[in-house]
Computed example of a mutant assay.
Amino acid sequence: MTPRTKEQNDEIRAARIRQILAAAADVYLAKGVMLEIRDVAARAGLGYGTVYHYYRNKHELLHDMLWHAFEQARAATDAAFDQDGAPLGRLRRGLKHLLRLWLDQPSVYILYKMVAENFHHMPSDRFPGLYDRFRQELYQPVAALLREGGGLPYPEKRANMVIGSLIGCAGLYIHHRHMEIDIDEAVDVWFAGTVGIDHEDRKEI
């Protein structure tokens, strides 16, 4: 048998990590911080030793899962918000794109939820860098679009309301996957309630 190349080994390692992180997100949704490595191994269909080879404990695993989720969220935010059009229209499209990403990649939803909860029940010294980058690269773009939209007081407060309401409502569908969600309708309703502009008022977008 021909030995695998370094590139092949790297691809296998990357695929295995993606498999483990996806399983970790599913287990976290079911068990929260009570998640254990053996739970993730079972969900991924891997041996305990295989997962332990990559992650020595659940805190290392969650740390890696959240940083991977951050990179996905940042790429999605950049792609959705850096478009032509009025600020509030770009924000609305970005929120719809973000919700689709949450439904497709639950780890990104978990990231937003854990930041909103200030990483409650997690080691206090593990996530300050992630929190700071989240605020700068994911939260501030939302506040900036609200500020650019004009006529909207307290953009940072409204950004908190937009993101917080999206987290709360999306959780109903993410935790109960048999439920279906109309993403366009849901974001329009949340947008109207938190930003204060009705989704039928196209003059603002």
Results as ranks from 00 to 15, higher is better:
residue 17 I to V: 08
residue 18 R to W: 14
residue 18 R to S: 05
residue 21 L to I: 06
residue 23 A to K: 12
residue 23 A to H: 12
residue 24 A to G: 13
residue 26 D to M: 07
residue 26 D to P: 05
residue 27 V to G: 10
residue 29 L to Y: 14
residue 30 A to Y: 09
residue 31 K to M: 07
residue 33 V to S: 04
residue 33 V to K: 06
residue 33 V to C: 08
residue 34 M to G: 15
residue 34 M to D: 14
residue 35 L to Q: 03
residue 35 L to C: 07
residue 40 V to A: 08
residue 40 V to E: 04
residue 44 A to Q: 07
residue 45 G to N: 08
residue 46 L to S: 04
residue 47 G to T: 06
residue 49 G to K: 04
residue 50 T to N: 08
residue 55 Y to G: 05
residue 60 E to Q: 13
residue 60 E to R: 11
residue 60 E to V: 04
residue 63 H to A: 12
residue 64 D to T: 10
residue 66 L to G: 00
residue 72 Q to E: 15
residue 78 D to I: 05
residue 83 Q to W: 00
residue 85 G to Q: 05
residue 85 G to H: 01
residue 86 A to M: 08
residue 88 L to F: 00
residue 89 G to W: 00
residue 94 G to D: 07
residue 96 K to A: 01
residue 97 H to N: 15
residue 97 H to V: 06
residue 98 L to Y: 02
residue 98 L to Q: 14
residue 99 L to N: 06
residue 102 W to D: 01
residue 103 L to E: 14
residue 104 D to V: 00
residue 104 D to W: 00
residue 106 P to D: 09
residue 107 S to T: 03
residue 108 V to Q: 04
residue 108 V to R: 08
residue 110 I to D: 01
residue 113 K to H: 15
residue 114 M to T: 09
residue 119 F to Y: 04
residue 119 F to C: 12
residue 121 H to T: 06
residue 122 M to L: 14
residue 123 P to S: 01
residue 129 G to N: 14
residue 135 R to A: 12
residue 136 Q to L: 14
residue 136 Q to C: 08
residue 139 Y to M: 15
residue 141 P to I: 01
residue 141 P to W: 00
residue 143 A to V: 01
residue 144 A to Q: 11
residue 144 A to P: 03
residue 144 A to R: 02
residue 145 L to D: 05
residue 146 L to F: 00
